[in-house]
């Protein structure tokens, strides 16, 4: 296999965000929607208006527990939500409600791949940057659609048990089928109800040590995931072969050009 590049082997872990197929959002009673006119499914809670308070969606918690049972995880007897604070226009409260040290589920496995944890969180709103850059820096204006804001997500984090792009793609398909059978999500990558980030590092084959990893963000199709991981493995191999070292950073894969670029720190902060 090409990405094992002789004596080096790839070590891959995945972080998968699954949009839960509940009727309403994670912390309010607004309906979930896709493709509706912007800002038509909002309320004081998901807009983060002053004085509003979140109330956890019982069905989302139930779905999270079902995922944990399907993956053979240990279900937390007591689980708490935390605030992840950062400033960004797609985050109306200035923090995302997520889970930190007491996630809903810990451990488990699917096939050969061990599960690190499963936790619940809310999705951010959708930002569109107007202008040539397509990014917030240098845009003429940015507009926010809060319909998606507050959508319930289950984040599934694997242990670094995958060894190739193909294996990662295959495993992700198994996870998708499992989630679909459970009925907890549409797991549709085009609509963003299944999103995947990959942590990738290289090490000497057979070693127990982990190398320095990079994080490849938000790949939105199975084909792109495999291509992206393959491209990043090749990039790291080339770097190491040239006597360089991998630095820990967050990367973006552009499926059109096949290029991998580093995300700027301000954008990186929001992950």
């Amino acid at each position: 296999m090409s990405e094992q590049g002789g004596e080096l082997e790839a070590v891959i872990g995945l972080e998968i965000h699954i949009q839960l197929a509940t009727a309403t959002k994670m912390f309010c009673s607004c309906a979930l929607s896709f493709g509706d006119p912007p800002n038509t499914h909002t309320c004081p809670v998901c807009l983060g208006l002053p004085g509003s308070l979140p109330v956890a969606n019982a069905r989302a918690v139930h779905f999270g527990l079902m995922i944990g049972l399907a993956l053979g995880s240990e279900l937390a007897p007591r689980s708490i939500f935390h605030r992840k604070n950062y400033f960004y226009p797609d985050l109306p409260k200035g923090y995302q409600i997520s889970q930190y040290d007491e996630p809903l589920c810990r451990g488990g496995h699917l096939g050969e791949v061990r599960i690190h944890r499963v936790h619940l969180e809310e999705d951010a709103a959708k930002l569109t940057h107007l202008g040539a850059s397509g990014r917030i820096h240098g845009s003429d204006a940015s507009i926010v659609d809060f319909n998606r804001g507050g959508t319930p997500l289950a984040e599934i984090v694997t242990e670094p048990d995958l060894r190739s792009a193909e294996q990662a793609g295959e495993w992700l398909k198994l996870l998708r089928t499992t989630m679909r059978r459970l009925g907890v999500s549409d797991v549709n990558m085009e609509e963003g109800s299944l999103r995947c980030d990959a942590n990738i590092s290289l090490r000497a084959a057979g070693s127990e040590q982990l190398g320095v990893k990079t994080e490849l963000k938000n790949m939105n199709s199975f084909r792109f995931i495999e291509r992206g991981i393959r491209a990043e493995i090749a990039r790291q191999q080339k770097l190491i072969a040239g006597g360089g070292t991998v630095t820990q950073e967050t990367l973006h894969f552009d499926p059109a050009s096949g290029a991998i670029t580093s995300l700027r720190s301000k954008e990186e902060a929001h992950d």
Binding site: P50, R83, P89, P92, K93, G94, I136, K266
Partner: peptide, 23 residues
Amino acid sequence: SSNLARFDGVRYGIRAEGAADLL
């Protein structure tokens, strides 16, 4: 410090004019 993060000028209340960028 967390509760008052939402007062960022994006959605309601005052917003400073003439800013160079988001930050």
